[in-house]
Amino acid sequence: MVRPMYRSRTFRRVFKKTSGRVSLHYIKRKPAKAKCAECGSVLQGVPRAFPYKIKLMSKTKKRPERMYGGYLCGKCTKKSIINKHIKE
């Protein structure tokens, strides 16, 4: 019998060949991709990893080194800067 906690699909199922037989492994799912706060597109240059691995990374590997880097996408930052200066 399977453990009750593994009946739901919260865990990813992986078939692995080990010593002549196929066995089932249950693996934790990765966290979701980082998305732009305005348009919702996937952000580039932001790693998709568990927080304990992101902790080990350097600051420059976690987000693009730009204004609003890791929060807005490149197009949305451009829009926000233009809107700000046209009003002036």
């Binding site: 730009r66 930052t77 451009k78 233009i82």
Partner: peptide, 11 residues
């Protein structure tokens, strides 16, 4: 001018 892209964006 104001730079709108890259590392110096917003300057």
């Amino acid at each position: 001018c104001v730079k709108t892209a890259g590392r110096d964006a917003g300057r």
